[in-house]
Nucleic acid binder design. Structure first.
Length: 694
RNA sequence: GGGGCCGUAGCUCAAUCGGUUAGAGCAGCGGACUCAUAAUCCGUUGGUUGCCAGUUCGAGUCUGGCCGGCCCUACCA
């Protein structure tokens, strides 16, 4: 039965380039779509740029051009990047389109008519210079709790306390530097709670979501009343004006998912199809692929809206984890924030498609890109196993033809004895049992399982070629061609299995064997008699130098990005630390400095403090009988045992301070923002306790 | 602080409903081969399934606790 399937990947925000983290999703989705198409289903891959919101507005202002210019530019970049990785959309739209404006209006009307919309006043900080309301992340000020300056609008990195931006002392807008004012404006909300029962049922039915996601929603949201969702913003805002609420705009998250439908609409117009066949038909399955960060929107808010508007609910929301590089979150300062274009400048995109496929499962787990593993996997699996089969067979039949069907059969010695296939039945076994098993894994998004199985088959094929040793059959040309024909058929079968992942390998194979691959069932049909082209390498091993260059380029791009006037230094230290804690403007006189008496000290005892979360109690020796009892907030990083005996720097004449746990008679010098990042200062070898620091 | 997910060989991952002696690939080690891109093939080393208890005829799998890691969230979800 032919299915009708509409597939979306999340809309990338038009505020930055595509990086390899994004690509996990677009490649995962692309593989699934290519698989469905290969199976003969009608399948659309729909995506678009997400273009609205304050961030785009601000950026356009900073660049001195219109939002439209900015997003047009960005869209072109995104489309180029995706194309480099063979991510093939049926339509790539934009949320800033006429189609989307109309659909937003229609859906808004449905939601309003259903009685889900209410208006409530909202107090928010307003930047009078930039003339816009400020989201928390656009406000900085002094923490009301610990008085630390330059903290974020909603929480303090120093004392970890939380507050609202209006509690901040001396708040400043990060957009203009102006002091924001507290203003009130009406917002429209969607009362999701009215859909509670439906959402509970839909999310918990076990059909539409991975179990861990269903559990998460149940534990986190569905146990309580669902909060009203604030879906409009007062000016200035870049977005669509709400028709029945003049001067106000839909919040970007209202119109973004509707962009899926708008982009489909564009495709329908271009192809003479009806939108209702894709979004209002029980015969069409809608599948969303998203990252776990936007779970809430796609599993509660979005189904609620679709249900209310009478549109198709997703058959499935496929949620994946984040990409880490070498086990850690991608980080600009570590040079692991690799952009798609930077990767494509140096390495073959097929490598990444295969690597991701080999690591993706149907679970929400994060997936790690370890560059050593990346090289090992690509070299071993793709070059050593799969491509190798072609490489070792094709040259014996180059510019010749594959043998006829009869030559692939080994007849019994005597009349009446059964015949067996030359390959011992490998091809038939694969097409009868393996093809379906692998297809099931693709369908269930268990790509890693599929890749594992395909590699097993590649091993088997290599073993068979080894046994047959076509290179030893020079005396028997006919047999040599027959063996190579069987080998190349095994190879081609594997290429069909890998076709969703490696479209370029498909093209190369089509050229080599002069026969198109258009369907999954091509894996079940052997090829005879076609002409074989001269063999050329289909894929090279990963060049470590290129990997190296990619990382270097990434670091450079980051450095350019961070500070254009930075002094040339080879260490690539990022500006983040300084930015997080700007330098004091006040000058310190020599006398001021001399007032602080810093000494080398040895930790002679260190203990946990009962009842204290962050403190350790240290006994410092300044040599002789001179000791200091000091409480230091370094428990999160240091164990008492590892501290005893080591040298530290302490401020010896700090006024003693009574603390809850006792008297602290000094301060141990350390650096870092706190939390897991605390670094004790220590003197070089040779220093003696009691020495003064000048 | 609240919640979720995870922990299996050096690395990446399997293991159906709880069911035989926990399996693969890579890396390592020993050999073979030389058609193939230092590719391939054969053999082999390697695990107290994070720890402790419980349920069971039987636990990697179920329950409780502990340890460790990751993530979300902390009233714009």
């Amino acid at each position: 039965m032919t299915r009708r399937i509409l597939v979306t990947a999340a809309l990338p925000y038009a505020n930055g380039p595509i990086h390899i983290g994004h690509l996990v999703e677009y490649i995962q989705t692309d593989i699934w779509v290519r698989f469905q198409k290969l199976r003969g289903h009608r399948c659309l891959y729909i995506c678009a740029d997400d273009t609205h919101g304050t961030a785009i507005m601000i950026r356009a202002r900073q660049e001195g051009r219109s939002e439209e210019e900015l997003i047009a530019d960005m869209r072109e970049q995104h489309v180029n990047d995706f194309a480099k990785f063979d991510v093939e959309f049926d339509n790539y739209g934009s949320t800033h389109s006429d189609e989307n404006r109309e659909l937003c209006a229609q859906i808004w009307k449905s939601v309003t008519d259903a009685g889900l919309v209410v208006e409530k006043p909202v107090e928010q900080l307003y930047d009078p210079e930039a003339q816009t309301y400020l989201a928390d992340r656009f406000v900085k000020g002094t923490c009301p709790n610990c008085k630390k300056p330059d903290q974020n609008g909603d929480h303090c990195e120093n004392c970890l306390s939380n507050y609202t931006p209006k509690e901040l002392i001396d708040p400043k807008s990060t957009l203009s530097g102006a002091t924001p004012e507290l203003r009130e404006a009406p917002h429209r909300f969607i009362q999701l709670e009215q859909l509670h029962e439906f959402l509970h049922e839909w999310t918990q039915s076990g059909e539409h979501l991975q179990t861990e996601i269903a559990n998460y929603l149940k534990g986190h949201f569905l146990g309580d009343e669902l909060r009203d969702w604030d879906v409009t913003r007062p000016p200035a805002y870049f977005g669509f004006e709400v028709p029945d609420f003049p001067g106000n705009y839909w919040y970007v998250w209202f119109d973004a998912p509707i962009g899926y439908i708008a982009s489909t609409q564009q495709w329908c117009k271009a192809n003479g199809e009806s939108l209702d066949d894709w979004w209002r038909s029980p015969d069409c399955e809608v599948h969303h692929f998203i990252g776990k960060d936007i779970t809430y929107f796609h599993t509660l808010f979005w189904p609620g809206i679709l249900k209310t508007a009478g549109l198709s609910l997703p058959e499935k929301v496929h949620i994946h984890g984040f990409l880490t590089v070498d086990g850690e979150k991608m980080s600009k300062s570590k040079g692991t924030f690799i952009q798609a274009s930077t990767y494509a400048d140096h390495l073959n995109p097929s490598y990444l498609r295969y690597f991701f496929a080999s690591k993706l499962s149907a679970k929400v787990d994060d997936l790690d890109l370890n560059l050593d593993e990346f090289k090992a996997k690509v070299d071993s699996d793709l070059v050593g196993k799969v491509v190798n089969i072609a490489s070792r067979c094709a040259k014996f039949v180059a510019n010749d033809q594959l043998c006829p069907q009869d030559d692939l059969t080994v007849w019994g010695e005597q009349e009446g004895q059964p015949s067996i296939p030359l390959d011992g039945g490998i091809f038939d076994r694969n097409s009868m049992t393996q093809a379906d098993a692998i297809a099931r894994m693709y369908e269930e998004c268990d790509y890693s399982g599929a890749m594992r199985r395909i590699m097993m088959l590649a091993d088997e094929a290599n073993r068979w070629v080894e046994e047959q040793a076509p290179w030893k059959l020079k005396h028997d040309r006919r047999q040599q061609i027959a063996v190579c024909t069987a080998g190349l058929n095994l190879f081609r079968q594997l290429v069909v299995f890998l076709a969703p992942v490696l479209p370029r390998l498909v093209e190369q194979t089509e050229k080599l064997l002069a026969c198109k691959i258009t369907s999954w069932d091509d894996a079940k049909v052997e090829l005879y008699g076609t002409r074989v082209a001269k063999y050329e390498h289909m894929m090279k091993r990963v060049d470590p130098q290129q990997v190296e260059k990619m990382i270097e380029d990434t670091k450079e791009a980051q450095a350019d990005d961070a500070s254009s006037d930075a002094v040339d230094n080879p260490y690539n230290d990022g500006p983040e630390a300084l930015a997080a804690e700007p330098m004091s403007g006040d000058e310190c006189t020599f006398d001021d400095f001399m007032k602080v008496d810093m000494r080398v000290a040895r930790v002679v005892a260190a203990n946990h403090v009962e009842g204290a979360d962050k403190l350790l109690q240290l006994t410092l020796s300044l040599g002789g009988d001179e000791t200091r009892n000091v409480f230091a907030g370094i428990k999160s990083v240091y164990d008492p045992e590892q501290l005893v005996g080591r040298l530290v720097i302490c401020c010896a004449n700090l006024a003693p301070r009574k603390m809850r746990f006792g008297l602290s008679e000094g301060m141990v010098l350390a650096s870092g923002p706190g939390g897991k990042d605390i670094f004790l200062l220590n003197p070089d070898d040779g220093a003696k306790p009691g020495m003064r620091v000048h």
